[in-house]
């Protein structure tokens, strides 16, 4: 694991994934450096979400390699062989990778504060007071300091998603994965979530974002990857991919969403 700092934080190399007989990832490559924001674009069913879920091993890959911080995800290499990790090892690896889901997936039986403090207490063994103080700071950071005692069912979609972001941040991840974080929101609530994500990007967080928000991609992304039918079609700076797409399929997609 030499030269971790010069290596990209996330390295995805020719990753393949099948669901039954359908191949949803057909050899995908992606590299994200520390502090970079990468946006994944593409029509639905192009494999963006699956790729994201492979990065924190919610899905296993059938071929290729995924490395986070120089460590292979899901497998331990030993003497030229790969060994499947135990659930405990996988859990340990996931601590470094935060994830925000399209449908928030907050724990409905816990308040906003408890949602954020739960994992630091259960996984990192933090004392309750410390975990809750930190959770309170994070709630203020996402602009929900007054909502600590509310249950998810009492919050709007935008507020729930901001709590979900704070919950992921509570584990101090090295990278944050966003799986269509604003797709389930009413249009007027999208802005508040994007604002939190902008602030997060400005603070230097490494992020991989699957989204259809072109404005966000153009403004915040360091690199944009366009996927179609399980493959990367085009890759580059937002200025190139969004403004001067070379590939016909990218052009066609951008015309439809803009």
């Amino acid at each position: 694991m030499a030269d971790i700092d010069s290596d990209p934080l996330i390295r995805v190399r020719s990753v393949r994934k099948r669901f039954g007989s359908r191949e949803v990832l057909k050899g995908v490559d992606l590299e994200v450096k520390r502090g970079e924001v990468a946006v994944l674009l593409g029509p639905s069913g192009s494999g963006k979400s699956t790729l994201l879920r492979c990065i924190n091993h919610l899905e296993t890959v059938d071929g290729g390699r995924i490395e986070v911080g120089g460590h292979l995800v899901g497998y331990s290499p030993k003497k030229g062989k790969l060994y499947e990790m135990t659930p405990r090892q996988v859990a340990e690896q996931r601590r470094r990778i935060g994830m925000v889901f399209q449908r928030f997936n907050l724990f409905p039986h816990m308040t906003a504060l408890e949602n954020i403090a739960a994992a630091p207490m259960a996984v990192l063994g933090r004392p309750k007071r410390e975990a809750q103080e930190r959770a309170m700071q994070l709630l203020h950071r996402v602009g929900l300091g007054d909502w600590a005692g509310h249950y998810p069912g009492q919050l709007s979609g935008g507020q729930q998603q901001r709590v979900a972001i704070a919950r992921a941040l509570a584990m101090d991840p090295e990278v944050m994965l966003f799986d269509e974080p604003t797709s389930a929101l009413d249009p007027e609530l999208v802005g508040e979530v994007l604002a939190v994500m902008r602030e997060l990007a400005a603070s230097g967080m490494t992020m991989i974002v699957v989204t259809h928000e072109m404005g966000f991609a153009a403004e915040v992304a360091d690199q944009v990857t366009f996927m179609d039918d399980g493959s990367v079609v085009e890759w580059g700076s937002p200025g190139d991919v969004l403004a001067r797409p070379k590939n016909a399929r990218t052009r066609e997609f951008l015309q439809r969403v803009l």
């Binding site: 924190n56 659930p87 859990a91 889901f101 997936n105 907050l106 724990f107 994992a119 996984v123 979900a164």
Partner: peptide, 18 residues
Amino acid sequence: VDSGQREAAYSLGMSPLR
């Protein structure tokens, strides 16, 4: 219980038992 709950817990690094 929705499977998204399990995934959210896993993504936070919780073990299956937790």
